[in-house]
Lab assay of single mutants.
Amino acid sequence: MGTYKLILNGKTLKGETTTEAVDAATAEKVFKQYANDNGVDGEWTYDDATKTFTVTE
């Protein structure tokens, strides 16, 4: 398990959240659902060194 971070750079929603997941693929699924639930759809990037996903609208 590891802690993964999501940085939201949406047009109307900005912020950060974290999740505990077994791997990056699992964290990505959780974060994409979170972003979708909050109406954020954009370009995704992932930094393996910091376990950080970023979505920018």
Rank of each mutant, 00 (worst) to 15 (best):
K51L: 12
T54L: 07
T54F: 05
E28F: 12
D47A: 04
A24I: 11
K11E: 12
T17E: 07
D41K: 11
V30C: 05
L13D: 08
N9T: 15
A27F: 00
D47F: 06
T50N: 11
G10S: 10
V22G: 06
E28L: 15
D23A: 04
A35T: 08
L6H: 01
T56G: 06
D23C: 04
G10R: 04
G2Y: 11
A27T: 01
T50G: 04
A24T: 09
E43R: 12
M1A: 10
Q33G: 13
Y46C: 01
V40D: 02
E16M: 05
D48G: 09
K29S: 12
D37G: 06
M1H: 08
T45W: 10
T45L: 10
I7P: 00
A49K: 13
A27N: 00
V22D: 15
N9S: 09
L8Q: 02
W44C: 02
T56H: 08
I7R: 06
K51A: 08
N9P: 03
V22K: 15
A21C: 06
K32C: 04
L6F: 07
V55P: 01
L8M: 14
K51F: 13
K14Q: 13
T52F: 03
D23P: 01
A21I: 02
N9F: 07
D47N: 08
N38K: 14
V55C: 05
W44L: 03
N38M: 14
T45F: 11
E20V: 11
F31Q: 00
G10V: 15
T50A: 09
F31A: 01
Y4D: 01
K14N: 14
F53H: 02
D47E: 09
L6G: 01
V22T: 11
G15Q: 14
A25C: 06
G2R: 12
D41W: 11
V22E: 08
G10Q: 04
V22W: 14
E43Y: 09
Y46G: 00
Q33W: 06
K32W: 07
E20L: 14
D37P: 01
T45S: 11
T3M: 09
A49W: 15
E20Y: 09
A35R: 01
G39I: 04
T12H: 15
E57W: 14
T56L: 07
N36E: 07
D37R: 06
E43Q: 11
A24N: 07
M1K: 14
V22R: 14
G2V: 13
K5G: 03
I7G: 02
Y46M: 02
A35I: 07
A25V: 07
N9V: 07
K29N: 15
D48I: 15
Y4I: 01
K51H: 09
V40K: 02
T26Y: 10
T19A: 08
K11V: 13
A24C: 06
E28N: 06
T56K: 07
K29D: 09
T12G: 12
T26K: 06
T54I: 06
E20I: 15
G42T: 02
G39L: 13
K32Y: 07
N36P: 02
E57A: 05
M1F: 08
A35W: 03
T50H: 08
W44S: 01
T50P: 02
Y4E: 00
D48E: 14
A49T: 10
T19V: 09
D47V: 07
Y34V: 13
K14P: 06
T56R: 07
T17R: 10
K29T: 08
T50K: 08
T26S: 15
L6V: 05
D37E: 12
K32E: 04
V30E: 13
N9M: 14
K29R: 13
A21F: 04
D47I: 07
D41A: 09
T56N: 08
M1I: 07
F31L: 07
T56E: 09
K5C: 04
T18A: 08
A25T: 09
A25D: 11
K5M: 11
K51P: 00
A49L: 13
K11N: 12
T50R: 06
D48W: 14
K14D: 06
K51G: 13
K14E: 08
G2E: 12
D23I: 02
E57P: 03
A24Q: 09
T45I: 06
T52G: 02
L6C: 04
K14T: 13
K32P: 00
V40C: 05
T56F: 10
T45G: 07
D48P: 11
K51N: 11
V55A: 03
T52V: 12
K5L: 11
F53G: 00
L8E: 02
G2M: 13
W44R: 00
F31N: 00
D23W: 03
I7E: 04
K14L: 11
A27D: 00
A35Y: 03
E16P: 03
M1C: 05
F31G: 00
T18I: 08
E20R: 08
E16T: 08
Y46V: 02
T26A: 10
Y46P: 00
A21T: 09
A27S: 02
E57D: 11
Y46R: 02
N36T: 10
T54C: 05
G39S: 09
T54A: 06
Y4L: 01
F31H: 02
Y46S: 01
E20K: 09
Y4T: 00
Y4K: 00
G39R: 08
T17V: 13
K32R: 13
G39C: 04
E57K: 03
V55L: 06
M1Y: 12
E57M: 05
V22I: 07
T17P: 02
M1G: 15
A21M: 03
D23H: 05
N36A: 08
D37H: 14
D47K: 04
D48A: 14
L6K: 00
K14H: 06
A49M: 14
F31E: 00
E43L: 09
T54Q: 07
F31I: 01
A25W: 12
E20S: 15
G2Q: 08
L6T: 01
Y4G: 00
L13F: 15
K14Y: 08
D48Q: 11
A21Y: 03
T50Y: 08
T26R: 08
T18F: 13
E57C: 03
V22L: 15
W44E: 00
W44G: 00
